[in-house]
Design a protein around this nucleic acid. Structure first.
Lengths: 353, 353
DNA sequence: GTGAAAGCGCTAACAA
DNA sequence: TTGTTAGCGCTTTCAC
């Protein structure tokens, strides 16, 4: 059977040997040209490129991956693509990856362990070269699976003594410090915290950073001023409901993420109260939306660009230096406060209630 | 050279022949078992599955794709992943695709022709089996490229006489009719429209649907009540600025998408005015956020689930029935009005100004 | 029902 | 420098 079984002369999908034939060189030379091997003479390279143009040829990545063992695909698994924080993160990650010749495979787990397992499985099947596990929690079930396959991974806020695992540490203290200081300066002493789900590392770290900061600032935080929400808009609404049922309420609240904060904004409004007059609220993440809420949300900024860049760099380092004995790396992404309109001095009558 | 070059006995990546050896069958039988070919006896199939479990084996998709010519990857290209409409759409699409054994490749073009070209190129290289081009405009430059490769595609609001191209028609009239009727009922007669960029099909269709509806409702729309924005939050702010500079202003405005509407909400607030008292605003898309804006946004719902499902179905139909002479299909996704708090009767003094 | 063997399109030795 | 060739891991005839 002949290799090229096309029945017509229609511009059928060109093949490396179609190119070779047209350029009158061997397929090896075509391969070398494509891969920018220095061992090709200018003359032949030119002929090859011309043939490539003419045929509108491009290599089959599956064949390439199969033989080279390298797919040039990176996986990125996020917690919830519906939280704008993540699309912004993915967008940055994609941009950097594509610029470096990598393709990305995106998946969202919605904090569902089964979905996560499925994602990882599919990524393993597709032979991704590394995975950025940006779920901020719940990654334990797949860690072994990934380790078996010796897969480079990067985790946020989760340390592992494995040379293939890099960590991105998020330093919330700077931002949270600034947030508390900002509130104190405005005259607040009763500051609450709407936490994220305790299953998320990020939620715990954020809460801890808050408590630590409050201690350092000699501010007491009443137990019921800390309420666990779920990082969603609805969760913020529910969180505020709990807070407003209290005898002594906080005059300001810091939220574990912006979605929660936006939910609070909404709930306060529905309760006939006003932000920031009746309650100051501060978010965390500083998603693009934060600037467009009513009132504009004061938020602790966590740079998606930095996080994406750190993730990519960690992965790339591991992928491209797999000989290096000490691959594990640690990155630090910091936070800072962006003051907008959702914070103000507490009303006197309320603050003494 | 021996085929299995592993230097150790460490659980190295199992291969189809590792499985075959362990199950004491041929690799063909393993392949048949995996692919659920009926021509395998229960007995052998059981042995094979056991070996697969034991080795924690799964097939190499690149090898599979290479030989079968099918990658089981679908591409989805959206306009702007930063607009929550799209993550919601992608999320649905992914869910459906994964449930049917497909992987997806996501890309966002940001309405940049070069980026689009790059996306398509990469998808072609990865041998996707179909592409959902949900950019709502600007897809012309890549249509030929895709046609050359005989790629099944699905387009929104853009018809093409090509058997490999399906179209999803979005019926805005239902929703826009309802929106205008709602405003009229509230007493509005001066209704403006903040359009999307004229480079987007969806923007044009939406504007046309609005104008048509206004005509049918015997409502005059002043030329400068229609202002072109860009479907972003900032664009909405800018759009309102233009509107408020007018001599005679509309008392209500329908926006081409929710992002624009949310921008308007913000701009009105900054101008010291109020929604809906001073201006009624209606969005389009009904993204999840719409329910959480202040006031909650009245919006024309465009179901992401329906759109995702129609896109997937169109693609799947074409991919799996490529013998069918009449592959081209057309889907219709409808819209409906969701009334919330951003619309009310116009203030008398303003409406007579 | 099962197996042997021929490639899918490409890269990377190895030869020349 | 360039070409020849042996596979990468799998599916799929074609014999048995």
């Amino acid at each position: 059977m002949s290799r090229k079984g096309s029945r017509t002369t229609v511009p059928s999908k060109p093949d490396i040997r179609t190119v070779a034939a047209l350029a009158k060189v061997s397929i090896a030379t075509v391969s070398r040209t494509i891969n920018a091997s220095p061992a090709v003479s200018q003359k032949l390279a030119a002929r090859v490129w011309q043939a490539i143009e003419q045929l509108n040829y491009f290599p089959n990545t599956h064949a390439r991956s199969l033989v080279s063992g390298r797919s040039r695909i990176l996986g990125i698994i996020v917690e919830n693509i519906t939280n704008p924080f993540f699309p912004e993160l993915i967008s940055s990650f994609e941009e950097i990856a594509v610029a470096h010749g990598y393709e990305i495979l995106v998946s969202s787990t919605n904090s569902d362990a089964d979905r996560l397992t499925g994602c990882v499985r599919r990524m393993l099947e597709r032979k991704v070269e590394g995975v950025a596990l940006l779920t901020f929690g719940g990654e334990e079930p797949v860690l072994d699976q990934l380790a078996i396959h010796n897969m480079p991974i990067v985790l946020a806020e989760f340390h592992l003594k494995d040379p293939k695992v890099s960590t991105i540490e998020l330093d919330y203290s700077a931002g949270i410090h600034a947030a508390v200081a900002h509130l104190v300066e405005l005259g607040h002493t009763r500051i609450g915290f709407l936490a994220g789900p305790h299953t998320l590392h990020s939620a715990i770290t954020r809460l801890n950073a808050f408590q630590q900061t409050m201690r350092e600032s000699n501010l007491k935080v009443q137990k019921d001023w800390i309420v666990e929400c779920d990082h969603t808009l609805k969760g913020g609404v529910a969180g505020f409901a709990k807070l407003s049922a209290l005898e002594t309420r906080p005059t300001a609240v810091i939220c574990s993420n912006d979605m929660t904060a936006i939910g609070v904004l909404r709930a306060v409004y529905m309760a006939g109260l006003r932000v920031p007059e009746d309650l100051s609220v501060i978010g965390l993440d500083d998603i693009d939306f934060a600037e467009f809420t009513l009132p504009p949300l004061t938020s602790i900024r966590l740079s998606r660009q930095e996080l994406a860049k750190a993730s990519f760099d960690a992965l790339r380092h591991q992928v491209e230096n797999s000989a290096d004995p000490n691959l594990q790396r640690e990155f630090l992404v910091s936070t800072s406060l962006v003051v907008r309109g959702s914070t103000a001095s507490p009303k006197t009558e309320l603050s003494t209630k």
